[in-house]
Amino acid sequence: MCGCKEKKSDLSLISDILDEYAKVPGSLITILQKAQEVYGYLPVDVIYHIAEATGNSPAKVLGVATFYTQFRLQPVGKYLIMLCQGTACHVNGSERILAAISENLGIKNGETTEDGMFTLSSVACLGCCSLSPVMMINGETYGTLTPDKALTILKELREKAEKEAQA
């Protein structure tokens, strides 16, 4: 995690955010959330920039960024699969879904496929317990999953993305 090797991010993209929040006490999390919306993740140079703008030490900003699961320090794939690990999902077999996706995509929880298509992330309860097991992909919720159903959904998404790429 050496800052020097990272590619440079366009810091101007968050200047509005910093103008609005940098001097408001207690806004660090909000700034990080908005910065992540902009970049898709939190690049190291962005963390430095935020630290400087808010008058915090980089260590503190990194400390906050690594405390909360929402923040990512690595880029994610085109599709972010958020697989719910809530109790209801557990009771209804979410581990089997995780295993099936993991095997199918060849990635472990937290990893991204080599082609950059999918990132697999098991998350805390999504609150859709009645539809368990549940996963959310880019904001869309898919419920009452079975291993087969989950893999079909991923297959469809991949086909969709490939079609888009061709077009």
Partner: peptide, 29 residues
């Protein structure tokens, strides 16, 4: 952080895996 007022050291991560890091080993820091 509190006594020296520098905050060079920080906590990274959460729970059992939390570690203490002098941030990034960056010269500036």
């Amino acid at each position: 952080d509190e006594d020296v007022g520098k905050g060079v050291l920080g906590l990274v991560g959460r729970g059992f895996t939390t570690v203490i890091k002098p941030e990034f080993n960056n010269k500036k820091v």
